[in-house]
Design a protein around this nucleic acid. Structure first.
Lengths: 136, 136
DNA sequence: CTTTACGTTGACGTCAACGTCAAGCAGCGT
DNA sequence: ACGCTGCTTGACGTTGACGTCAACGTAAAG
């Protein structure tokens, strides 16, 4: 999976854009798009992009955010939060405030999902009941 | 809230597009857009749209679907499912299959949310720890 | 040394989900 | 009768999230 051709033992693993795209099942265009928006910033070897483990971590976070329906801009502010400076009290308090907003949002979504699953279960019961009443 | 001017006691409640939009905190344009896509189909009084309770129910489902990040087309197939004919075995089996797909999807999203909340909690702990180490 | 594979940067296209006019009709308050 | 308000139907604009070329560089493989 990883590009090991130029990696003597003990060096860090790196990946090309194609390997990254394949692994996460997206197109290279998508990966580049995320870079244009500043969500990832891979190393460059000349003009060629070199992806490290932290880029994979971020991409994982991006795609999870997408599955949850967050817009990319919002995703950027969230994952940037993890790397934000937290040296001063004001900075830490800002980050903690952001965390609270995120949590509130996520908890709303969780409730929505619970509700949807509950309804779905009830609906399934009714369907199975209908089915059991059919001839045959 | 409801238009009662022409409602003698005992008649069903109805609402105008503006009332609906206000109640759900969307624009009338949004409501019309959903109608164009076939997600709701209010009664007409001449050219004027008249919304009943079932329209409100559907709009609620639509907006919840949106909060969960589903595209409108997919939302339409889901809420249509609840009204789908289920008289024949093949129809019921189709519906049950769709329900299963929906549940799998929702459960994936729930896992994503749980993960995100867990990470967020860990991150908050680290931040609070940092904060407690600050002077003052 | 050319082919082939994979990489690069634009630039334009597309689709969803509306926003934003424009222009018109319909009732009703004075 | 007249204007105001609220509703209507187009029709075009916008934004986000990519898709889809075109045109080019480069490095290993035949």
């Amino acid at each position: 999976m990883a590009s090991r051709a130029r990696d003597p033992e003990g060096e860090v693993e790196t990946w090309t854009i194609r390997e990254i795209a394949e692994e996460f099942d997206v197109t290279h265009r998508t990966v580049r798009h995320y870079e244009e928006l500043g969500l990832i910033s891979p190393e460059r070897h000349g003009t060629t992009r070199i992806y490290h483990r932290r880029d994979k971590t971020r991409l994982g976070l991006i795609l999870r955010g997408k599955r949850l329906g967050f817009p990319l801009e919002e995703i950027r502010t969230i994952i940037d939060l993890y790397d934000a400076p937290r040296g001063r009290r004001s900075q830490l308090e800002y980050v903690l405030g952001q965390i609270d907003e995120r949590r509130t949002d996520l908890e709303q979504r969780r409730r929505d999902i619970e509700d949807a699953l509950t309804e779905l279960a009830g609906f399934e019961d009714r369907c199975r009941e209908d089915l059991s009443k059919l001839p045959g």
